[in-house]
Design a protein around this nucleic acid. Structure first.
Lengths: 144, 144, 144, 144
DNA sequence: GTGGTCTAGACCACA
DNA sequence: GTGGTCTAGACCACA
């Protein structure tokens, strides 16, 4: 499956599961109506306690992203896609903002931060893609 | 002072204090030999429990960045600067890597991520999206 | 305290706690800003597992009725009163509607149901108060 | 048929089936000796798992309300009527008592509760708030 | 098999 | 002391 959990990265495990379900819906890996992997199944696969998975799924139900079908399992709600697209943008922007703010606060310049970012992006993608479609941004990165 | 604590950003408060002391040393705000603000002072100023500050300072001593001087207080160790420059790079790269990896994992393209980054950087700096071609910013880094 | 839990009445215990906190806020027993009894305290007093209390409090946080203050405890949110007044009306109406519908469905007449209700209300209050300020309603009860 | 199941009203589904069979006997819709709809039939009609229906019917047999007739099906026991009249009174009174107690506990006055009740009764019956002075309803009860 | 609830108990961050 | 997270494991209703 598409989950990758890091139990020691500061973010609570159940929160990581919540985020990743939202992301999976946002990118279309999970579609409205689709059945999720069972609590016990995921639990085994990720070597995480079923309760922890359950808690994540419960939060997703509370947010209207999952629906519980008695005796069947949990499915992606019909209205989930827009909710998750919105949530993805929000969640990523938030974390990004926090990290960038910290970097600047730490005394790095915008140029240094931008360098770091493009370096990491390149490494993460194994390529040096035109990082931004915006030629200006690309230029500043090269030149900094 | 230079600390800005966010009790709800996932990172433990004491950890935030540790990071920010390292960053202050790295950017030169805190210099080797300099006296740190007292536990009580910082505690009052940041509205944080003294235990939490104390714990952060203890960790910094364990890492050789702070020295306890009897009857005086805690000072920045002579060897602290390189340690903190190194640490800053490491800490920021780590968090950045994590966030960028998550963004890509979430289904955003490199271009979308880069756009987000330059947008946020611009917002954080109050400048136009030309992220860092600004010679002033670059200059301040070199000179600091 | 004001909680009375019945572990075997079909409603989940945590749900009973959630309801009763809302009711306590609605009637003014719990006021915005006020500190709630601690999870462990309530847990002991009600002879309920702390996790169960915790789950109830968590849901109340998610609904914006409680706020967590690190190391201090949980307080009633400033905006809680209207939320709880609304919720009380809703929760009680829902259950009432269900029971009355069942009674009618079961073949009782409106008059029989109304009799049952006024009998029970009288018993619960230990008096025969002017059940409704509306003279008509009172009349039907007396006459049925 | 006369069943109306609400999978999300807190009462277990099999319990709802049990209650509704009792109610049907109490109001005369199901008469002693009469054959019940088959498990499969009901199951299909209510979109409920046959196991759930089966469990309900088993409980009704245990209570002496249904009889299994080999090769025929389940019939209403001869002694069922008084049992079910008794049970109806009991079941409805219980639930009613619970809901009313909760409403009073929640801080509503008897008058407010009585108003709610007469409002709901009126809505449920599509009649005016004169809750039950209607001779017709009373008549049907006597005659059933 | 599925999810939902509850208990018991550990460990953490924070005041 | 406070709440937050996580594990382990039981029992229930339902398919």
């Amino acid at each position: 499956m598409f989950f990758s959990i890091d139990p020691s990265n500061g973010v609570a495990i159940y929160e990581q599961v919540v985020r990743q379900v939202k992301f999976a819906v946002a990118e279309g890996t999970l579609r409205p109506g689709q059945l999720l992997p069972s609590v016990r199944g995921l639990s085994g696969q990720l070597a995480i306690n079923p309760n922890t998975i359950h808690r994540a799924f419960q939060q997703l139900q509370a947010e209207g992203i999952l629906l519980s079908q008695r005796g069947v399992g949990l499915t992606v709600a019909q209205a989930a896609l827009p909710l998750c697209l919105e949530a993805r943008q929000q969640l990523i922007s938030e974390r990004l903002r926090g990290v960038l703010a910290e970097a600047l606060h730490a005394g790095l310049s915008c140029a240094q931060v931008a360098d770091l970012v493009s370096g990491q992006l390149a490494a993460l993608e194994g390529k040096v893609p035109t990082v931004a479609s915006d030629p200006e941004t690309a230029a500043t990165e090269d030149s900094s």
